[in-house]
Design a protein around this nucleic acid. Structure first.
Length: 598
RNA sequence: UGCCCGAUGGUGUAAUGGUAGCACAGCAGAUUCUGACUCUGCUUGUUAAGGUUCGAGUCCUUAUCGGGCAGCCA
């Protein structure tokens, strides 16, 4: 690769643009946000982040980065029954990994334990500026919606005082019946017209723990006949006598998403609250709640985009969990999983994932992205950076009959042929070497460039060999191939120019290290496994193949986080869990493109 | 069928009333000590019908198709 093509490709160079970024630019131009742009990534800590979240993360952090703003990482943790600190930790790690080296400086975190403070008769919580993230002595943590329980409660009382919320005694079943249907208006709750004083008293007693779960709710007083069902007096608070993984044991009333989300955005000073399309119908409620409270600061605005759908993959939390529970995969971070943890373990660089999700764009069209787009992004990234190595997956022994048993021919091989600055290593050609079984054919198909009876092939970086004799074992299987090595064609020698059609990789049999290598393929056999009657019935039975490979010696020192291209085979990375010092287990991240196989 | 949203080559996306472009995929060729990379060329598109306009992928109307919404989940 020359210097020019080594440069960052246009796709990663050009500032992305989309309808949301356009809105941000317009708002900025209109002077709407003198304090700067603030976005947020607000997962609920009830599962692992997956490739779909990567799109949202790159959008939110990207907008902040491009506009000198900030992006808060916030746990949307208002349903303690489903959440766990395990997820808080995995989410935080995954986000940091994905933005590392790109948007770290705009990651909004806050001092551990910080809560909103009173500010101008209102509440507000501010992040520690990104630049101070690393230098600050104070311990930082993400934002948590559950840190706002006290302020949210205060806002709820204000809503009651304004006559815009009421305590409702309807049972869950009754509430459902009163709501009507999309094409049928609902009807007013019999508790809708309680006095402010009674509502206040009841709500305070709800908080005090006087009523059991499900006995009462706090509801917004909007319009039970609204065409948008989310405006039919939506529930704001429910009673749950349960401790919270982050907030502790002080609460038995917890706010619902619609109420907590808009106000959390407001408390943090979020300017642009970006979410996926299914929340489109919630937007009027988002705006109603913020409007109903007559808040003094600029209000956040919600915008929606289409979530990522990638062919041959599933992201449903329930289904992913099923794969884990039924041991289809080894865990949430199995390299075949679409989780960020799995993708990372597979060896995909964060930069490749970013390149991919940025490339698919941001629209309101519900699309299905081909896997090839993802694979291309991974290859682009790895091709430019992964050092080249030789590894033989399915060894076939070659005896170079004209080499002495103890003879060593030293061969210099560039780490990154496109970039001499990346250095080189020395390969030792010995009398016995392994080549890929696929690289020999006793009965070659048409246009076969590799080794065949009587044929020649170049051992890359070494020289040309000629197949002289096939040695078979008692069962008739090929045991080894006896070849002659043409010393005149040694790389670097004048005779090296002699043309042979094929060039193959190889390793010295005596010097090679053995390593377990795991080859992965897509988990499903159909482009939309989520639409299958039973997604477990469209599993790819060959999604994992485990081999014992022969690798060039220096690979024994490989460590997780490194990526290598095993020439002609693909990109590999040491497995972060199962590798031992000096004895790595390799995961194949992705194959090289193979136009011959087709 | 109540409300909301969407529709540009095979796929994804750009064009903000003025030359339909880019990427991926595909095909053909060049190059190659990786059948990779790189390079060159090619194929393929504005859902439909009306309207506004000098001019419409873009604005309006209707139709068609697709998606979302009726948790005390987020």
């Amino acid at each position: 690769m020359n210097a020019e093509s080594n440069a960052t490709p246009p796709a990663a160079n050009v500032a992305p643009s989309d309808f949301i970024r356009d809105i941000v630019a317009q708002d900025l131009a209109a002077g709407r946000h003198p304090e700067g742009i603030v976005t947020r990534f607000p997962p609920e800590p009830n599962g692992y982040l997956h490739i779909g979240h990567a799109k949202s993360i790159c959008l939110n952090f990207g907008i902040a980065l491009e506009n000198g703003g900030r992006c808060h990482l916030r746990m949307d943790d208002t349903n303690p029954a489903k959440e766990d600190i395990e997820y808080v930790e995995s989410i935080t790690a995954d986000v940091k990994w994905l933005i590392s080296g790109w948007a770290d400086s705009v990651l909004g975190l806050k001092p551990k334990g910080a809560k909103p403070a009173a500010e101008g008769g209102d509440f507000r919580i501010r992040p520690v500026p990104g630049a101070e993230n690393t230098s600050s002595a104070a311990e930082l943590e993400p934002f948590f919606a559950s840190d706002y329980l006290e302020q949210l409660y205060a806002y709820a009382e204000r809503l009651i005082e304004k006559g815009k919320a009421y305590v409702c005694d309807l049972s869950p079943k009754e509430t459902d019946e009163y709501r009507g249907a999309p094409d049928k208006p609902g009807k007013n709750s019999p508790f809708r017209d309680r006095s402010v004083a009674e509502n206040l008293d009841l709500f305070r007693r709800m908080r005090a723990g006087e009523f059991p779960d499900g006995a009462r709710t706090l509801r917004a007083k909007i319009d039970m006949a609204a065409p948008n069902v989310w405006l039919r007096d939506p529930l704001l608070y429910r009673i749950r006598h349960i401790d919270h993984h982050h907030a502790g044991s002080g609460w038995c009333v917890y706010p619902l998403y619609d109420y907590a989300h808009c106000l959390s955005d407001y408390l943090e000073g979020v300017t642009h609250s970006v979410c996926t399309l299914e929340f489109e119908v919630h937007r009027p409620l988002y705006e109603w709640l913020l409007g109903a409270l007559d808040l003094p600061r600029v209000l956040p605005r919600q915008y929606e985009f289409a979530k990522l759908h990638l062919a041959y993959t599933i992201v449903s939390k329930r289904k992913l969990l099923q794969l884990v529970n039924e041991k289809v995969v080894s865990g949430w971070d199995d390299p075949r999983m679409p989780t960020l943890a799995g993708i990372r373990r597979r060896g995909v660089p964060a930069s490749a994932l970013r390149r991919f999700v940025t490339g698919v764009g941001v629209t309101k069209f519900d699309s299905l992205t081909e896997l090839a787009v993802y694979e291309n992004a991974v290859r682009e990234e790895l091709n430019a950076s992964a050092h080249r190595r030789f590894g033989v997956l399915r060894p076939l022994k070659i005896i170079l009959v004209n080499l002495a048993p103890d003879e060593v021919v030293e061969c210099s091989a560039g780490n990154l042929p496109s970039d001499p600055a990346a250095g080189s290593r020395t390969l030792a050609l010995t009398r016995e070497v392994y080549i890929e079984s696929e690289d020999f054919a006793e009965v070659p198909p048409p246009k076969y460039f590799r080794l065949k009876p009587g044929g020649e092939v170049r051992l890359k970086y070494a020289g040309i060999i000629k197949c002289e004799e096939i040695v078979k074992d008692a069962s008739g299987a090929i045991a080894e191939i006896r070849c002659t090595f043409d010393r005149d064609t040694r790389t670097g020698q004048p005779g090296a120019d002699r043309k042979v059609k094929g060039t193959i990789h190889w390793v010295s049999a005596s010097l090679a290290v053995e390593a377990e290598v795991r080859l992965y393929d897509r988990l499903f056999t159909v482009p939309e496994p989520g639409d299958a009657e039973d997604f477990l019935k469209v599993l790819n039975p060959n999604s994992l193949e485990i081999l014992t490979a022969k690798l060039e010696p220096c690979l024994s020192g490989a460590t997780p986080g490194q990526s290598f291209q095993f020439e002609r085979l693909g990109y590999f990375t040491p497995d972060a869990k199962d590798s031992a010092a000096g004895r790595p287990v390799f995961n194949r991240t992705i194959t090289l493109k193979d136009t011959w196989a087709k």
